[in-house]
Design a binder for these strands. Structure first.
Length: 271
DNA sequence: CAACGGACCTGCCTGC
DNA sequence: TGCAGGCAGGTCCGTT
């Protein structure tokens, strides 16, 4: 799935096509997503005007005059802006049809994504209320990371992938950020020094920014709003590079499983 | 509370 | 060739 850079790339791609448009209708072909698409949502949203498209963590929030659509891409989801008449392909689960003749089409083979709705403040929605700070915002720093890690015995990798610690860091960028910060992924979070947490916060910010500049990472399914892949895969230092030489020191990259997720690291560069 | 395993789902790859 | 098993970018939920 899409982690923060892929979701933000999607947001930037769809936003100009959506803002100011009227929703003609919501066409749901498959309501069985991570949570069922709410019954009656189509009737509720039809005719509403879209005011803006926001991202919080890996959620996309489509603000409209009727309320806010809450979207998540799950592991394999993507959103594209297409002509409303474009031929439907497998796993095209819903279209948000706009008055421009185009539609926002959601495709998700694994159906881990979702389409929900709230008429209230979306940031107060149960799925969003407990999220940690945005990593590219000013209220995210190493001091905060360090304070939260006190007494934690879980691995530093699992710790930074916990959305309550920091929002938007998934499996790829967790490994990549730890490589950049020189920290072994299996180290207990509570044993990482304050100085190294500062380096880690900076590394998270740097890797997400670099990935964003490259349009994200495409491993399998991800495409942006225009159907194009992201090119950060070419620049991954460790992710899915087990056995290959570290680009910095030549040591073979190692793979291990932490919290049921594959993790990659360089024994030469990471302590 | 923190930590862990299971659950949700399809597609693709490997090995027997 | 066919089939079982494992794995994949997320994250909620129930249990220890």
């Amino acid at each position: 799935m899409p982690e923060l850079p892929e979701v933000e790339t999607t947001r930037r791609g769809i936003e100009p096509w959506l803002t100011g448009r009227r929703i003609e209708r919501l066409l749901v072909r498959e309501r069985r997503l991570r949570w069922p698409v709410p019954r009656g949502l189509a009737a509720r949203i039809a005719g509403a005007t879209i005011s803006r498209v926001e991202r919080r963590a890996k959620y996309l929030l489509v603000h409209t005059s009727a309320g806010t659509l809450i979207l998540h891409l799950g592991m394999s989801g993507s959103l594209r802006v297409l002509a409303a008449s474009a031929p439907v392909r497998g796993h095209d689960h819903f279209d948000l049809v706009l008055d421009s003749g185009r539609c926002l089409r959601f495709n998700d083979p694994r159906r881990f994504g979702c389409l929900l709705f709230t008429a209230d403040d979306p940031l107060a929605h149960p799925l969003l209320a407990e999220l940690g700070p945005e990593p590219l915002s000013a209220d995210f720093d190493g001091k905060r990371l360090w304070q939260r890690a006190r007494g934690r015995r879980a691995s530093i990798k699992a710790f930074i992938m916990d959305a309550r610690t920091v929002a938007g860091v998934g499996n790829i960028y967790a490994s990549e950020a730890l490589f950049r910060a020189g920290i072994r992924p299996g180290l207990a979070a509570g044993r990482v020094s304050r100085a190294r947490m500062q380096a880690l916060a900076a590394a998270i910010r740097a890797v997400l920014t670099a990935a964003l500049d490259a349009g994200g990472t495409t491993l399998r399914d991800y495409v942006d709003a225009a159907g194009a892949p992201g090119y950060f895969r070419l620049r991954l230092a460790v992710y899915e590079r087990a056995g290959q030489p570290c680009r910095k020191c030549g040591t073979p990259i190692r793979q291990l499983v932490l919290g049921q997720r594959s993790s990659y690291w360089c024994p030469g560069c990471q302590r």
